[in-house]
Design a protein around this nucleic acid. Sequence first.
DNA 1: AACCTCATCAACCGCAAGGGA
DNA 2: ATCCCTTGCGGTTGATGAGGT
Length: 188
Amino acid sequence: MGRSPCCEKAHTNKGAWTKEEDQRLIAYIKAHGEGCWRSLPKAAGLLRCGKSCRLRWINYLRPDLKRGNFTEEEDELIIKLHELLGNKWSLIAGRLPGRTDNEIKNYWNTHIKRKLLARGMDPHTHRPLNAIAGAAISPAQPSPPAATAATTSRPAPPRRRHRRDGTSASTSTSPSAWRPTSRATTRR
DNA sequence: AACCTCATCAACCGCAAGGGA
DNA sequence: ATCCCTTGCGGTTGATGAGGT
């Protein structure tokens, strides 16, 4: 499989999107629809690579995004789907209208993992941790992730937490309302 | 009040798959 | 059948800021 550079790195912006960039992207997609990400940035007058545009659109700008707290039902559905599908975030997202794979993946890693650990369940196998710990002793079981998870990633609810706003950051904002990605950073 | 710790999440990277030439 | 290009996905990173000390 040939791999080609996704973009001319020298002439593209990275990091947080500006309001103007968002608006350009939205306007372009409204006018021309999604697709052809490779050529989109140029056509839309964006100094971004297509990959970045796609990600921004899918994860943040799409008008049908739900954005907001995951409900208890969604939590359980995610857990169930994860048990069935594993880390197939895009497939899981497909069953949760208005949610993106990135959002679900983040949510899994920050909330649900811990939730399962608190229940004494291994987030990878969805089996009771003690069962796995027992199995770990047997040579057949090659160091189960759970064991590490239980020890390295702090188990159950540590000392804090409460979402920035208690309602999930983006929550408050409507998808269309530009939220200053105040991480005004240039990464890497 | 100042400093420290760490949860959160937007955005990046690399790889794989799919499809057209 | 093979090559090349584009898109999509999963994993990871790191700035930010809330909450703890």
